[in-house]
Design a binder for these strands. Structure first.
Lengths: 373, 373
DNA sequence: CTGAAAGCGCTTACAG
DNA sequence: CTGAAAGCGCTTACAG
């Protein structure tokens, strides 16, 4: 994309590629500036390279590079001279070149199911905070729980030469990935995968807290709703069953595709069938919402007709009437820890696998008031 | 980071940089595979380059490159031969090198205030969908409404040689950026900035709809809550004032830092002062939430004591009792349009500025029922 | 349609 | 502490 001074027209508009503005095009003379589309003056002069800084400071490329990257041994005065020249020229490093040469991309990948899920939103924010703090870029991808997309993005990560990937895999990811090799370590969040490092909610503890709380408040017939598309649904299911057994109670668990609609449908049918439990635990934000809708839709009262609790302290759970008892996940902490583990794994690849289980917080609200009947 | 076959130890652990795993290190012989930390076998052989593909297929680098990038003229049979060789070797392009040489990063930047704001979450999801569909990467940054961070990330975008940036600037961004030149076009979302292209809600229409609806339902003394940190707060304020005037009513607007706490505080004081309006319009999701909390906290009934409406159809607005009347923003459409405009601007830099205003949808719920008193 | 050669902007042993 | 030189992996005029 190149402009001429007089006509302000693009000389090579026929490309359908994105290219950095201001890039020089062989054979075309670049002419200084004009007011651009975006309202800021955009310089059309050649971007200064390290070579220009070397020339301006009377030093060699090598020395300038060392001064700029701040990692070689450089005399302090020399360094200042380089910095001054770079500043004067408005030098900005070309990250593409730096990465190619140094083989360090300073980039990690983050593959989540859907960034619109508040859990992943919070986690990814934590990861980005930690990454940018260390000068690392994050490439965010949404897999939509689709194994094909997962595989595609994982391949993309290879091409991007990322240093590592943080990933919330589907249950099928293991199979899809089997046989593939990666040049980077993988940390999974929320869900386990193979023997990759993993950081997630302490599901066992969380379900214990939930069941204990309901039992303490007088509920005995406690049902559970668990997703069947991820390792997490399985883990929470198992934890629920064992907590129930610990209390000498009979578990009544239903597995489902963890969407709001599926939960609403399933809970609706459950209620209609006449064998509804006294209390219901939903294993994530979406199924909790679906369950609540089904209950409301039938005009039943919470908790008088059926108590309701779940996992994920989403904003709405506190605002509805009655407010819902939930386990709040340490979302920010999960992201932050995943990032820390990734950095650790990059520097110490031979470490044995580690699984970090972070405690959730039981937030008691009105939807599980002590049973009166 | 290099392993030896026997010890499985890292030979160069002293670095604090991220580097792609499997990268060759000059002077160290890389030895084939072992079971890695992450449970997948990771090949330690040299990654094949375009050169290896050329050797394997008996063709030149140039031809291989053309066949692989699919843009030069290449004989179909030749192309197949190259593709087969690449496949056999497990060749993956090095994006760093490609970008350096071609000066096309196939990357755009996205700078939002905070990805945890559901509005930005939805918008960014749309942008990412569109981008990955076209093989473009997205670099996501959170500015936290901090002009210093905005400037920093904008500079980062330069270094990344992005093709363009989509941006939700603060009011101060204009001043902070003044004098700086960018090598890429800027599209702003939600808020205007200088004369950059902009795509946002049709604020005028939105406030018209809101005020018209309230007036039609019998409310006259209608108050408004507007943010004072972005151009959008200003735009909505002005639209509110003019809509009120159109109805011959007296506007009563308050400006504030658009956070939940600030809104709760301000509305609380307003209610306590005794001159509370009959209906209140909050200009975004956070202030709407704060307003609702203040009203509830004082035990007032919605809409009997005070009606409430706002902008942003967040999940909770439908779930609270009573459900809140809101303008739903076309969030996905905003992101998608921004992306389209950016691509357009990249290919046609000389186009005059364009501002796209997208219509929101008035979603009438119980919080603005016809006034009975 | 294909190949030889230059070069994108950097970093990094190597030698002083 | 500094410089000369090689080279990261690719693309792209240029010439055939």
């Amino acid at each position: 994309m190149v402009y001429t001074a007089d006509k302000r027209r693009c000389l090579t508009p026929e490309t359908d590629k994105i290219q950095p503005y201001g890039a020089s095009q062989a054979g075309v003379t670049l002419i200084d500036l004009q007011k651009t589309f975006s309202g800021f003056y955009r310089s059309m002069v050649m971007k200064p390279s390290i070579k220009d800084v070397a020339a301006a400071s009377g030093l060699s490329l090598a020395t300038v590079s060392r001064a700029l990257t701040d990692n070689g041994l450089v005399n302090e005065q020399t360094r200042q001279k380089v910095l001054a020249a770079a500043e004067a020229l408005g030098y900005r490093p070309n990250l593409q070149a730096r990465r190619l040469r140094s083989k360090q991309s300073q980039t990690i990948g983050l593959i989540v199911a859907d960034i619109r899920n508040p859990f992943f939103t919070a986690v990814s924010r934590a990861i980005e905070d930690a990454a940018y703090r260390e000068g690392i870029r994050v490439l965010l991808c949404n897999s939509d729980e689709d194994p094909a997309k997962e595989a595609m993005y994982l391949r993309l990560m290879q091409e991007e030469q990322v240093g590592g990937v943080i990933f919330s895999p589907t249950l099928s990811a293991g199979a899809a990935i089997a046989g593939t090799t990666f040049d980077f370590p993988l940390i999974t969040i929320d869900r386990a995968l193979g023997d990759a490092d993993c950081v997630a909610l302490n599901n066992h503890e969380a379900l214990d807290k939930l069941v204990d709380h309901l039992v303490a408040n007088g509920y005995r017939r406690i049902g559970g709703l668990f997703g069947n598309t991820s390792a997490t649904g399985q883990a929470r299911h198992d934890a629920y069953v064992s907590a129930m057994h610990r209390h000498g109670l009979t578990p009544d668990a239903r597995r489902l595709v963890p969407t709001m609609d599926a939960a609403q449908q399933l809970v609706g049918d459950w209620l209609d069938a006449g064998d509804a439990p006294e209390a219901l635990i939903a294993s994530n934000g979406l199924t909790l919402l679906g369950a609540m809708r089904a209950i409301r839709q039938r005009g039943l009262r919470i908790p008088d007709d059926i108590a309701l609790a779940g996992i994920d302290n989403e904003a709405w759970t506190e605002l509805v009437e009655p407010a819902l008892t939930v386990i709040g996940q340490p979302t920010y902490d999960i992201g932050d820890t995943a990032m820390r583990m990734l950095m650790n794994r990059i520097h110490e690849p031979a470490l044995s696998r580690r699984v970090v289980a972070l405690s959730g917080e039981l937030i008691v609200r009105d939807s599980t008031r002590p049973r009166t009947a």
